[in-house]
Design a binder for these strands. Structure first.
Lengths: 344, 344
DNA sequence: CGGGGATTGGAGAGCGCTTTCCGAGTGTTA
DNA sequence: TAACACTCGGAAAGCGCTCTCCAATCCCCG
């Protein structure tokens, strides 16, 4: 590869017969530059094929036009298949899609960052403070995560998707998970289900515990003080396993709320295997309204989680905070809705 | 937000009582520095909480430690829902997961770039040449895409996932799509299917046309010179529509090869709706072995597309090319395998 | 026709880092 | 002890850009 040097501002300036400063002004549209010169400069830019060097520009402006999408994972179990699962999960894609829908038109780039250890988190915050990116959208996976606090302490503009596990003055967007669970409970009850069980996610992550709490509370209010529950980890297989366990312990069950669609898919398989018809014998309500819900058969009745919208809102919030770091800390909570299909 | 200036190399040097150059050497582990000084410097780094500024470093080293994941789309239909679909598709996540599995341990970042117009492509190539990233992994969606050629002409290290639509001297990884289609054909034939149809993807994208060609060729060799075909666009809904059309024109059909799992899901729905049992009445073979395949009911017999592995290999290839730009252009073709499940 | 204000272009000082080039210090050999 | 080869740290020149000064030019009005 020839190291043919690329044209720089300097080159353009020489060709246009003006100073670097002038070219810079023209390119950035600053101040009134004599229209004649203006044209001469653009002409030179065209002839040289000049492209501004973003790195150099960022170094002085302290702006990169990039935001980081940080996935904060718990300690990596090394050759851990987890991240693979995470990326393949529709969750990740939906978030990226939502973010890009607003970032793209603003010409802002997205840089992906995975941190799995506190050391990596420290390094990340350091880089961010150094202006590696203008801000961060954070997807926090571990039950308790020091990252949000580190970010605020480093005064790095950041927005979480999902509420922080411990109270931290940081912007976030979240779903009213408890309301969603309530919707599911009421639907199951309204259908006439009598023996209702639940397949939950890990009890220690906020989104999951909110769903558990919301579901239990609603059921208790309607006289169901005890809800048989099995815990999964949001994967399809764990849903299948949980459903089998539930069936073994509660053969007479006629309704189940599954804390996400992927697990519901597994549950459906286990039910089919056990010869139960859905929804006739057992009604199933999922959560997320991911693409899996409509792919399932029967199509899943599920709680809609407007993840794309939430991610888009997170992006907007982040952009606003970057613009005005003194902005009041705010959070946006989305209301879920029940999507009725065939499984309940 | 206080603009408390972050410690720089200069500060560390002052505290350690040495010159900037020395600190730089210590930090980058260059040359033998007196072990004593070495320690003094690290101590100063620790005390100040110094973090090197990657931007500044990149500006001089011409290395960013970042590779771009470029999604080259056709002209955006503006408020086009397409990108949303694309990100939500398991395809995107699987690629990201595969890439990260390699990049992560090398400490290389991934920056996401979407280009929808030739203008954006030009700008992208310019930025890349300017060292915005060390190289690019390209996901090319349009039937004919000038990007690969632009990249090679700009001598930007790049690797395509999927072969280029027109011959360009560029590294790529691809799947032997035709072989995959052959696998599907033989399986259907071996099952004893007599009237076999196909739901293909858009005829103008390479991956899709290879599947069509491979399938037709294999069928022809076995005496089936004519294969009823409907074209979809790789979405679930298009698969459903295509299946209906196929059924309408060929009510007696007993086997169908669907060019990806998502469309197969739709086909399954259409078959169910038409009262056909799968696989008893109609055998269905999908393509990709995405998570949708196992989620489907009946679980899809499908052609495995090792996308994660391919993406990982693409990342390795890219890293190698960045290291040695003169490296011979190479391509890696993966062999698909038939995964037998319940639908055929 | 001269002076004040407004407008415009240029010089140059950085942004934070790497790296070449040197000179000074150390050890080795004849 | 002198000559030589090394080793090691520091000074300084950039990487490509922005932006603050400041000087030059222009216009308008008295």
């Amino acid at each position: 590869m020839r190291t043919e040097r690329l044209p720089t501002l300097e080159d353009v300036a020489r060709i246009a017969g003006v100073s670097r400063a002038t070219v810079s002004r023209v390119i950035n549209g600053i101040r009134n530059v004599d229209p004649q010169l203006h044209e001469v400069v653009w002409d030179a830019v065209g002839r040289t094929g000049y492209v501004p060097n973003r790195l150099a520009r960022s170094l002085v402006t302290r702006r990169t036009g990039t935001v980081a999408l940080v996935v904060s994972d718990s300690e990596a179990h090394d050759d851990d298949p987890f991240m693979g699962r995470f990326f393949a999960d529709p969750y990740f894609g939906r978030v990226v899609g939502g973010l890009m829908s607003v970032l793209r038109e603003k010409g802002v780039q997205l840089a992906l960052q995975i941190v799995g250890s506190d050391d990596q988190r420290r390094r990340l915050v350091g880089d961010l403070r150094n202006g590696q990116a203008d801000g961060a959208i954070v997807l926090s996976l571990p039950p308790i995560d020091p990252l949000p606090r580190m970010l605020t302490e480093g005064s790095v503009p950041a927005v979480l998707i999902g509420r922080p596990s411990e109270p931290v003055p940081i912007d976030y967007v979240d779903l009213a998970n408890d309301t969603g669970a309530t919707l599911a409970a009421e639907h199951l009850l309204a259908r006439g289900c009598q023996r209702i069980a639940m397949i939950s996610g890990p009890a220690d992550v906020p989104a999951s515990s909110d769903r558990i709490a919301g579901f239990r509370r609603s059921m208790a209010r309607r006289g169901h003080g005890w809800v048989p529950t099995e815990t999964g980890n949001f994967t399809r297989d764990s849903g299948e396993t949980a459903m089998r366990a539930l069936l073994a312990g509660n053969p007479e069950l006629d309704g189940v709320f599954v804390a996400n669609d992927l697990m519901a898919l597994g549950a459906l398989a286990a039910l089919r295997e056990a010869g139960r018809r859905v929804p006739e014998d057992v009604a199933v309500v999922g959560f997320d309204d991911s693409s899996a819900a409509v792919a399932a058969s029967p199509a899943l009745t599920t709680v809609r989680h407007p993840l794309e919208d939430m991610a888009a809102e997170a992006a907007r919030l982040l952009l606003a905070r970057i613009e005005d770091p003194a902005m009041r800390v705010s959070s946006v909570i989305y209301e879920p809705a029940l999507i009725e299909r065939d499984s309940a």
